[in-house]
Amino acid sequence: MKPKSPVMNTRRDFLQKIAASAMVLPLMPLAGWAKDLQHYDGPVLRVAIMGLGSYGSRVADAMQACVKAKLVGVISGTPSKIKDWQSRFSIPDKNCYNYENFDRIKDNKDIDAVYITTPNALHHDEAIRIAAAGKHVICEKPMALNAKQGQEMIAACKKANVKLLVGYRMHFEAKTLEVIRMRKNGDFGKIMFFQGLCGFRIGDPTQWRLNKELAGGGSLMDIGIYAINGSRYMTGEDPIWVTAQETKTDPVKFKEGVDETIQFQLGFPSGAVASCLSTYNMNYLDRFYLNGEKGFAEMQPSTGYGPIRGRTHKGELTQPHVTHQTVQMEEMAGIILEGKQPVVAVDGEEALKDLKIIDAIYHAVKTGQKVDLKLS
């Protein structure tokens, strides 16, 4: 009898297991990451985290190694979590807020930005309130439930003259950036094909990720966005059409509007195509493959918390691992405070393109038709 596949409750569990499987790779100590910054005496981005769940905790822990970004505040609806974080991270009472009163951060000069790590459906209203309070917004992906909400968030941040950034941590990951560099350098030749496989078997049926009102969908809104976004930075193009098909084997667990498995295909202006899979019903899926006329790149794990593993036709990728969220927050501080330009954008406009693709995928599933895309 074959052993049963392990059941994972969330994307966080999935990414943690993927990370554990890759731990045979050498790690770079966080001290190594900070080595070149140890004499840094420039501006520091002072951040409050909204939503003190597992991912918020991961970001907070990673920020302890940052020199350009510092955790200074929290926003939560759970008083016990606030007390715990105050103890762990030395956060003063005046920088603690709940979901009813966090508009008061407008008067708090010790907070520059708020990082939203709450469920998808809350991002839109929270981001608009944060912008109205005059603080920069960092939001987890997907940025919103749909493109309309995303547009409204962008408009609110522009009106308030604050930055809107999205937690695309892979845009700063060393092996990912090396593949992008090689592609730009022409090492792969003309890009022909991309494959993105993202999924895990989700557990607890009562969690918010299986609640359409909070999640906005199912696997596509959670794990599938990695393949959507990855198809764009791996090929270096934005798609111009999409087709998609949904498979649902458990309509009790995956209720109406909560997708279990979606396969989708993308077409790009150059003629390149992508074939992607997003699922809540299969384990051991975290793979990107890029094919060109002169070579290839393969990454597996491709989007986990790391270490990422990868190879190309030229050999193994050997860039050292640094905690993704540490690098992300350092780089985002540079974007906000110093006007730095990342290799791959992490702003609201970048996230809006993914939301337009998500809208189109769901429309293609519903209609069975090919849907044309206009992302800019």
Rank of each mutant, 00 (worst) to 15 (best):
K135W: 08
V137F: 01
V137S: 02
V137D: 02
I138Q: 01
E140K: 10
E140Y: 07
K141H: 09
M143W: 00
M143L: 13
L145Y: 03
N146W: 08
Q149F: 09
G150Q: 04
E152A: 10
A155D: 14
A155L: 10
K158E: 14
K159H: 09
K159Q: 12
K159F: 12
A160G: 11
A160P: 11
N161P: 04
V162M: 08
V162W: 01
K163A: 12
L165I: 11
L165Q: 07
L165W: 05
G167N: 02
R169A: 13
M170N: 08
M170H: 13
H171Y: 12
E173P: 11
A174V: 14
A174W: 07
T176P: 03
L177D: 10
L177R: 14
E178Y: 13
V179M: 06
V179H: 03
R181L: 07
K184N: 15
K184G: 05
N185G: 15
N185D: 15
G186Q: 08
G186T: 09
G186I: 05
G186M: 06
D187G: 05
F188H: 04
G189K: 09
K190H: 12
M192N: 09
F193D: 11
F194Q: 01
F194P: 03
G196C: 11
L197W: 04
G199M: 00
R201A: 07
R201D: 02
D204K: 06
D204V: 06
P205S: 07
Q207M: 10
Q207S: 12
W208L: 12
L210W: 01
N211R: 05
E213Y: 11
L214Q: 07
G216D: 02
G218W: 01
G218Q: 04
L220M: 07
L220S: 00
M221E: 03
D222F: 12
D222L: 13
I223K: 00
